[in-house]
Design a protein around this nucleic acid. Sequence first.
DNA 1: GCCAACGTTGGC
DNA 2: GCCAACGTTGGC
Length: 145
Amino acid sequence: MTSAPSSSRRLVKSEPEAYSYEQLVKDRVTSWTGVRNYTARNNLRAMQKGDLALFYHSVGPKEIVGIARVSKAAFPDPTVPPEEAKLGWLAVELGPHIAFEDPVSLAVIKADPRLADMLLVKQSRLSVTPVTEAEWDVVLSLAGG
DNA sequence: GCCAACGTTGGC
DNA sequence: GCCAACGTTGGC
């Protein structure tokens, strides 16, 4: 087996007014629905139960606030109307894993040369992105360990 | 509120 | 298949 372990790490984005990490903690589990972008969909499809994902609050706070855990691998998005089912939109189920004591702001990420290639920065509209193992470790260190 | 980036749609 | 128009996202 030589497949890259880094493929199990990702980042998901949400506007906190739509769905926040705090809400995820309250809910314990949520269906991550509504992705309507093919690249993001493909990233969702690769997520396996137990995989971890950085959780980014877009628009307002603009910071990574914690880590979510995949509790159920990709399945057809139940919010898709039947006539669009053939398009293959997917959802996953997420639960809270760790809330950062020190969220990592976009400004800090942009200022760190080790994170210059993060897709969060380079492709800012993509809502589900892979994160390399190196990027993952840097973000966690910036979050205080 | 503005606008850049970028994905999607539809006319040709 | 090309490309202009349009819609959405999200940083600033």
